[in-house]
Design a protein around this nucleic acid. Structure first.
Lengths: 126, 126, 126, 126
DNA sequence: GTGGTCTAGACCACA
DNA sequence: GTGGTCTAGACCACC
């Protein structure tokens, strides 16, 4: 089952972080159609946030057609997001991890890495 | 001169995006001490946002001691952020770009890449 | 500008009633692209409901791509819903009103009318 | 025997939909004193809802004095709801059906029709 | 117990 | 002032 986390310092609203994490998990194949998300109350308790905040995230996912809440039962994945096959992804992931390790060895801190990644990603997109 | 951008769909408040971009540029050496930032008016016009939003970002940067507004002249970089030497950075950047190109070739779209990068970065930090 | 109403006895959640009313207004041509909806606070005050309830309705409409909230400015119609030309609609409406008047004259109360309309509509759909 | 239906997308609680349908059927003369309603189990199975939901609807009807459960035998209509004489109703119904057919011919879809009916009904009441 | 709705009120980002 | 987020807590519908 997916494990959520919230980073309060990022400026991104917590409910959107949850949405992103589900989308990422779907894309990476960590969540599949039919899987059950943790209950609203569990997530709220674990992350020490308000149940309504979790509900808001689940609602947004429902609006996107990705999950479906079933009263009395829980919230379930309704539709997946196409991604690469698992082996291809693992390969890419390994490559990225190698690069990350190299950057760390070179003396870059995580802020610097984030900055570099952000600009390279942006330049690449445009 | 630095070129700002805002991504309204990300959930990050626009003024924080501007702050981040300046910090990133400082860290990557794209902005140096003495450089002038674009005027509040210009930025507001180009990004179609309210001048107050830009002003808020500049004030936050000034508060951090990174820039300094000189009335009637503009806003100038006051202090840099330590980063790696330029050649080291260029090397790392090239490596990252190679990885990105590979991911694209493998058929990943930019959302998928963002998802993968986000999770790998997170897993690495913890 | 559209005038909302809520019928607390119907069992339909108030926020959904608001959503329906905007959709109907779009379909009937009473609201057009670019029109501004009344502010969240105004609606809440007029209907004596909580602003969050109104906000929820507006959010749902935004999810459907029908309206777009612009912080500091208001909420605006983003996309219309195709309907018949106004004259055709007016004609149909007149016909329906004639029928309604006849039903009333025949001694039917509004509950009876609602029951009849509901079953006929349903039978027609299937 | 009455055939129930539930529209999960309407926002009206399923148990209320069942109650309404019985009341409508009584008003229209489709259900008469002494008629038997389908069993809770059957309804639950056909509509794929929880038996408790059906039970709740039947209890509400019993509470209103419209039906009466006879243990081991089923649930029976106890009291009718006054409506117009059958011929009058048939006449009105035919008129409404003519209007509906006309609206369809004019190119209106069922959502559009529902919107028009809703607003006209409302305007008429006020 | 599970999701869903509503209220009340605080605080933030934006114009 | 306008939309948007979050909290706290109550109540409902459903399983």
């Amino acid at each position: 089952m997916i494990e959520f986390r919230v980073d309060t310092g990022s400026g991104v609203p917590p409910y959107r972080q949850l949405v992103h994490q589900v989308e990422h998990a779907l894309r990476l194949g960590r969540l599949r159609v039919g899987d059950r998300l943790p209950t609203v109350k569990d997530v709220a308790k674990r992350l020490v946030i308000n149940p309504n905040t979790v509900l808001k995230a689940y609602r947004e996912l429902e609006h996107k057609g990705l999950v479906k809440g079933r009263p009395g039962q829980g919230t379930f994945v309704e539709r997946g997001l196409t991604g690469l096959p698992a082996d291809k992804q693992a390969e890419l992931r390994a490559g990225l991890e190698r690069w990350l390790a190299e950057a760390y060895r070179a003396g870059m801190d995580s802020d610097g890495i984030a900055a570099l990644v952000a600009t390279v990603l942006h330049d690449f997109k445009s």
